[in-house]
Computed example of a mutant assay.
Amino acid sequence: MTSPFLSIIIPAYNEEKRLLDTLKQVFTFLESEDYPSEVIVVENGSSDETYALAQKLTKEYANLRVLQNKKAGKGLAVQRGMLEAKGQYRVFCDADLSMPIEEVRHFIPPNLNSDIVIASREVKGAIRYDEPGYRHFTGRIYNLLIRLLALPKLHDTQCGFKGFRAEIAEDIFQYQSIDGWAFDIEILFIANLRAYKIVELPIPWYYKNESKINVLRDSFRMFLDLIQIRKNARQGLYDQKKV
């Protein structure tokens, strides 16, 4: 197989109901593009038939790879996918495709050339569809904490669509220590320490009520993770290893 230009990584936890449709949309998009690509589904600790379904779909899609983590954790799944991907550009996206997959065109050359591109629901030009007011409010409160404690210049770190140049991904994901929802804050924090260029890209975003996030529980967990990120930085755990 030709070395892929683009790798799309999809973490999948209990996604048997929508994985088939998600992959159909992803591969329909990729078939319209003129570069080699791969899709990596990383199943992480599901209690349903997500892994079996994904494995079955490898017979239909030649450039689909399926990995399995025994331990749950979105962060673990994305980390493994990013480090095992072969693409020159590596984008991870949520299985609900709350951002239309076609938007990935704007994450990569020739449309955009950056170290890191993150989808944003907050910068000028972004549009939110069908999001309950309370979810937007709680999200902004949490983002305020993120800006105060970790990433003052970013407006939306938690949208589940982010892209990296291969060498950047291979550098920063090896230092990731957080398994859960706050992993991307840690990754962006490390990237910021390295002075990598991060672009926030405005997107159309569609609220999906099947979201697995529990606002109160996961917000508290992510707050604790923010404190841990700052502690890790003070201890030098994100310092680049000397070769």
Rank of each mutant, 00 (worst) to 15 (best):
K56A: 12
K56W: 06
L57D: 04
L57F: 13
L57I: 11
T58W: 07
K59T: 07
E60R: 15
E60W: 12
E60H: 15
Y61D: 02
A62S: 14
N63V: 03
N63Y: 14
R65F: 10
R65E: 02
V66I: 10
V66H: 04
V66A: 08
N69E: 11
K70Q: 12
K70T: 12
K71G: 01
K71H: 05
A72F: 05
G75T: 06
G75H: 09
A77Q: 02
V78S: 01
Q79K: 15
G81L: 04
M82H: 09
L83P: 01
L83E: 03
E84P: 00
E84Y: 12
A85W: 05
A85Y: 08
K86D: 09
Q88P: 00
Q88C: 02
Y89W: 14
V91Q: 00
V91T: 14
D94R: 04
A95H: 03
A95V: 14
D96A: 14
S98R: 12
M99F: 10
M99T: 14
P100N: 09
E102S: 15
E103R: 13
V104P: 01
V104E: 01
H106A: 10
F107S: 00
I108D: 02
P109G: 05
N111A: 10
L112H: 12
S114H: 11
S114F: 05
D115E: 08
I116W: 01
I116M: 05
V117M: 06
V117Y: 03
I118G: 00
I118Y: 01
A119G: 15
A119M: 11
A119R: 01
S120P: 06
E122Q: 15
V123E: 04
K124P: 04
K124Y: 11
K124I: 08
G125F: 10
G125R: 10
A126N: 06
R128E: 06
Y129T: 02
D130K: 15
D130P: 03
D130I: 02
E131A: 15
P132I: 09
Y134M: 10
R135L: 12
H136L: 13
H136C: 03
